[in-house]
């Protein structure tokens, strides 16, 4: 039986700044299995996007991986030389960015951008690549794909452009797609369509997805498993059922309380008081304790590690020895 598709072990990402070495992601470990949709959820600055960029090898300096390993199908990819990593990008690992309006080069037709990507990774004639491009455009639900190949990005609406971006990310069938807030910049009415499309395409091609978002609704809708990140660490990891329905970590359950529900009438949504600490000011002990309603003495002194409870993992002293 083959191992997991993506294995991340004890990943640490740090920035060398004038004020010293700031650790933005610390001791993050998780596996993503073939065809699985794995969600990473958390507030802005929790380190979710950095984790995604590290996987595809596009961390922007001065950010860099200072510890840990990333493996794709068992082979390490975090230390690959630039040229080999480049061949992996697009072909094995695709990426979808947040803003479809700025993700496409305005000066080229989408047909050119698609065929260019296909020809970079596949040994095909130009005509074959074009044919493939038209097929993938209709797969992502763009009507009159043949004609649309000749159009420039500004001739598409936001939702249509995100479909083009998805087509570009998936055009050579990568095994893994990292979707970094793929619906945040879109209208609410279009968000659901794009998420459904992503899920459908990835199921069809057995592509695994790492979905980075702050939207618990999206997570609940399409993810198989989910990791909740806070201040650079995973605080809870489990199946969607475990995390959404029975969140154990006070931060995770706080996030779930912020999802509006049609069934229970509420005057106001629950809210977690305060905001996430900045990188340079992460408190000692559990990073969440200043905002945690259930914090006690130990939380202020020692940092909790992930422990396993009924198949899920939680980093919280409520679930360990309390002393």
């Amino acid at each position: 039986m083959p191992g997991p598709l993506l294995q991340i072990a004890h990943l640490r990402i740090a920035f060398d700044t004038r004020r010293g070495n700031l650790v933005a992601v610390d001791d993050v470990s998780f596996d993503v299995h073939r065809g699985e949709v794995f969600g990473i959820v958390g507030e802005s600055g929790a380190g979710k996007s950095l984790t995604g960029q590290a996987v595809i090898g596009l961390l922007e300096p001065p950010g860099r991986i200072t510890a840990g390993r990333i493996r794709l199908e068992g082979r390490r990819i975090d230390n690959l030389p630039y040229a080999r990593m480049r061949r992996l990008r697009g072909k094995q690992i695709g990426m979808i960015f947040q803003d479809p309006l700025t993700s496409l080069n305005p000066l080229y037709t989408i047909g050119r951008q698609l065929t260019e990507t296909i020809l970079t990774h596949r040994n095909m004639s130009h005509a074959q690549a074009r044919e493939h491009a038209v097929r993938i455009l209709s797969d992502v639900g763009i009507p009159a794909a043949e004609k649309r190949m000749e159009h420039y990005p500004h001739q598409f609406s936001g939702g249509m452009r995100q479909r083009v971006v998805i087509a570009l990310a998936l055009c050579v069938n990568p095994k893994l797609v990292i979707a970094d807030e793929p619906t945040t910049a879109l209208d609410v009415s279009i968000q659901a369509q794009i998420i459904a499309l992503l899920k459908q395409l990835c199921e069809k091609h057995a592509t695994a997805v790492v979905l980075i978002t702050h939207d618990m609704g999206v997570i609940a809708e399409i993810c198989d498993r989910v990791a909740v990140m806070y201040a650079g660490r995973i605080v809870e990891l489990g199946t969607v059922r475990q995390v959404v329905k029975h969140a154990r970590h006070p931060y995770a359950s706080g996030l779930m309380g912020a999802i509006p529900s049609l069934r229970h009438r509420q005057e106001r949504l629950n809210q977690i008081e305060g905001s996430m600490p900045r990188l340079a000011e992460i408190p000692a002990g559990c990073a969440f304790h200043p905002r945690c309603p259930e914090a006690f003495a130990k939380c202020r002194r020692r940092r909790p590690h992930l422990i396993e409870i009924q198949g899920a993992q939680v980093a919280c002293w409520l679930y360990g020895e309390k002393a």
Binding site: R86, R89, G90, D99, T102, P106, T117
Partner: peptide, 17 residues
């Protein structure tokens, strides 16, 4: 620094392209 250059990198295009 633009997004479309980042996206071009994420698609594995060559540096030359």
């Amino acid at each position: 620094r633009t997004d479309y250059i980042k996206f071009a990198r994420a698609r594995g295009l060559t540096d030359r392209a």
